[in-house]
Design a protein around this nucleic acid. Sequence first.
DNA 1: TTTTAGATTTAGAATTATTCTAAATCTTAT
DNA 2: ATAAGATTTAGAATAATTCTAAATCTAAAA
Lengths: 124, 124
Amino acid sequence: MLLTKQRSLILNIVKNMDGHLSADEIYILARNSMPGIALATVYNNLNALYAAGEIGKVKIPDSADLYDRSPILHDHIICSKCKGVKDVRIPDFLGQLKESIGEEIDSYDLTINYTCQKCRKTSC
Amino acid sequence: MLLTKQRSLILNIVKNMDGHLSADEIYILARNSMPGIALATVYNNLNALYAAGEIGKVKIPDSADLYDRSPILHDHIICSKCKGVKDVRIPDFLGQLKESIGEEIDSYDLTINYTCQKCRKTSC
DNA sequence: TTTTAGATTTAGAATTATTCTAAATCTTAT
DNA sequence: ATAAGATTTAGAATAATTCTAAATCTAAAA
């Protein structure tokens, strides 16, 4: 995998962002440093970096995928009102799944819907 | 909620299908009995029946939603090769989630990726 | 240093699932 | 019979992502 200037810019953005951003949001940030960059390049590189295990990716039902600075397996809770995403770690979740299903599991996609503290109080 | 002939046809198809079908597949079946039915009507009714708790819906990442004859909460494993979906029941999964996260959870979306027995043998 | 093969980038078109729109039609209760 | 509201229809619109093909870049070989 070549480390082009587009790719290293995108890696840099993802590694330094806090929270979780979509390809489109990363594209907007990338254009600040490199105005001519194409959206397709952002997608290409996010895919390549994810495939190479450099970054994480979160599938949000009915919404754009989000990218995560950490490639380490963990889970996500998303607020149904404000759509804010938080990382959560469920101890040995994969082990629990395998045990209760009795099949060898490759991977899983999980998003947990809740209402965050702020939204519960202020009704956003 | 009115029970129109379109709606009862669609309910009937879903309740009698085995396995899981997409809106488009249900549309094709519906046209056998009612050739003029619109795809939008199939979507409208699947949404209405799901909202009314009559049927289930499964979100498949990067693919069309599937509908499920049962509205009762359960989980799904999907074969990465043949894309076949099977129901699984993980005992008190919601309880486990709540406990390990320490938040009140509204709902969750989970799909588990595996390779089914057939595909493991025959490489499909 | 030139060549070359392969990887990457770009712009824009294409794809796919689903929702939206607005007009027509149907239902149910009056 | 009528009116209000729900549903249906066809087709346009939307949104996220991938695809295409040509141009450009990179790294390594000659």
